[in-house]
Design a protein around this nucleic acid. Structure first.
Length: 258
DNA sequence: AAGATTCCCAACCGCATTTCG
DNA sequence: ACGAAATGCGGTTGGGAATCT
């Protein structure tokens, strides 16, 4: 399914993603995170714009995504939260782990919207604001949008905490943590004590200039980077391990705080 | 069997918001 | 404080698959 792929006037590929492109993007993001979507496609060896890569990762390649039919519970949740929040798809998606905003949006338009015509809208039990009032109230007087009100536990310290402090958006934290770890939080130091990211980056620069080689033996929890980085492997291994831990933590936290 | 229509969903686009220098 | 760049969000579109006639 999807659109026929083609190359635009800037040499950027558009339309449906090929398996090869998916593999390149997946392998790259799983190893190094999305430190900068704009630059990422260049390093990942994908002829796509950053925006397109981000979308593909978020909606299709990201680990932990559920696919297929919606359960009754999920359907009820969507109805309930759409009632409260309106078309705040990303906020609704945050309530359904494993589902993307795009997916929920599509589901709403193709399934629930039709059915809602048959079923009268559910009465708002707690007098929650309607879509419109929610919108206006949330944006007044500097109040954060309701979709961004979740906060993470205070007791978090260390690299994770500094990342989390930089973002109050839980749903953003899930997917953005790795990029912030490296780009926004540039003072973060890998566990092995190597303090200069730039230095390390420069030392392995040859990697970036080499054509991308898909490592099919890649294992998220046990990736052997030695063929690529030699002695620098530790930098990236600890970096990627930190990213994984951070993501796991966030996913777990969301599970525990529906 | 084949053409028409509808459904579904991946992907694009434009705008808003956030971040950074 | 300001502007540019990066990122995120929601609406819309395009096209393959499924269904209907």
């Amino acid at each position: 399914m999807g659109r026929i792929s083609f190359t635009d006037e800037n040499g950027m590929k558009k339309g449906a993603w090929s398996e090869e492109e998916d593999n390149k993007l997946r392998a790259y993001v799983q190893r190094y995170g999305h430190w900068n979507w704009r630059q990422l496609p260049k390093f990942a060896g994908v002829a796509r714009c950053g925006k397109s890569c981000r979308l593909r990762w978020m909606n299709y390649l990201r680990p932990g995504l559920k696919r297929g039919k919606y359960t009754k519970e999920e359907e009820d949740l969507i109805r309930e939260w759409h009632d409260k929040l309106g078309n705040k798809w990303s906020a609704i998606a945050a309530k359904l782990p494993g589902r993307t905003d795009n997916e929920i949006k599509n589901y709403w338009h193709t399934q629930l919207k039709k059915r809602m015509k048959k079923i009268p809208p559910t009465k708002n039990p707690a007098g929650m604001p309607t879509e419109d009032s929610c919108k206006s109230e949330a944006n007044q007087e500097g109040q954060p949008d309701i979709s961004h009100q979740e906060e993470l536990p205070q007791e978090n310290v260390g690299p994770e905490a500094s990342v989390l402090q930089s973002s109050e958006r839980i749903e953003t934290s899930i997917t953005q943590s790795s990029s912030e770890m490296s780009s926004s939080n540039s003072n973060w130091v890998p566990e092995d004590g190597i303090s200069s990211w730039d230095q390390s980056f420069a030392e392995v620069e040859s990697f970036w200039s080499e054509p991308f080689v898909l490592d099919t033996s890649y294992n998220q929890n046990n990736c052997d980077l030695s063929p690529l980085f030699g002695d620098q492997e530790g930098v990236f291994a600890s970096y990627s391990s930190c990213l994984d831990d951070n993501n796991d933590f966030l996913y777990q936290w969301i599970e525990d705080h529906p």
